[in-house]
Design a protein around this nucleic acid. Structure first.
Lengths: 148, 148
DNA sequence: ATTCTACTTAGTAATTATTATAAACTGGGG
DNA sequence: CCCCAGTTTATAATAATTACTAAGTAGAAT
């Protein structure tokens, strides 16, 4: 996880103004490791600055993704992307039933494509997602079976 | 890639009726390895059966995902999920600029989580996504640099 | 083959997610 | 302190998805 100051300096290096809105959004993201959706970020923003518009949240998140300090992760099933400040190599474990998403902090350095497989792509990073059913949903599904 | 008959038998096993609409959607998916969006599937459907509604396409795709014969892949940046019949272990190479998505047919069997890492999840599969810039976008970005 | 019924579909409307636009505002260099 | 390019806001438009219900039909039962 990057510190707030580090992220702000990335903005400065890219000639983006440090507005109160952007600062707040960054603070929220640094403090929230739960892969929030756009709307969840927005809801947190307006508890502090009630007049911030959704557009600003969208704009800021897109800018941060373009700068590489945020990544977008898929929440398969629920609409809308989710955002993650942790730009270091880490991976995900997703419940296919309730879409709970956990971070896997281990690295998998052995994952590399051969030049042939890469087809000329300049590869920047890779991410592994494990799909499964969380303990909670396993119980729910089991009791559903019984009732049939 | 599964055959059409295999997929139809999965529907039968799950007591889902084999309607002409569902059959057509499955035929299209089996023939189309390009990770189509919902709308791309819909557009192909209506060239054959013009009266099929978008609702039916959504319903069918969701049912097939629930049965595990389809997987949903993220197209980060463009709205809307994309679908893939290839339920076998395969992986993706995504251009972060134009969102072109290639399949990587190699397997990575060494990827396993320890029980501690899995946190009680019953893990069904895993998928690796490599992020990079495709040759085409590398050129475009290079010439953009020059013009600065 | 015919009938019956629960499942499925089509069409419309509603909801949610995202982007476009333009006028008003402001961070930070000079 | 002033200025202006970059930002924000509010509104509206567009796109994606879901809800709803009457009409239709696949497939089991007869």
């Amino acid at each position: 996880m990057e510190s707030l100051e580090t992220l702000l300096s990335v903005l400065r290096q890219n000639h983006l103004k440090i507005t109160p809105q952007r600062r707040l959004i960054l603070e929220i993201l640094v403090d929230d490791a739960s892969h929030p959706t756009v709307d969840q970020v927005y809801q947190q923003v307006i508890t502090v600055m009630p007049n911030v518009s959704r557009t600003t949240v969208y704009n800021t998140l897109h800018e941060l993704v373009a700068l590489g300090v945020l990544i977008e992760v898929q929440d398969m099933g629920a609409g809308g992307g989710r955002y993650d400040t942790n730009a270091s190599q880490h991976h995900h474990l997703l419940c296919t039933h309730c879409h709970t998403l956990l971070d896997i902090e281990r690295d998998f350095p052995e994952l590399e494509l051969t030049p042939v497989e890469a087809c000329g792509y300049r590869i920047a990073r890779h991410q592994v997602t494990f799909y499964g059913v969380c303990p909670c949903c396993q119980q729910a599904l089991a009791s559903q079976e019984e009732s049939i």
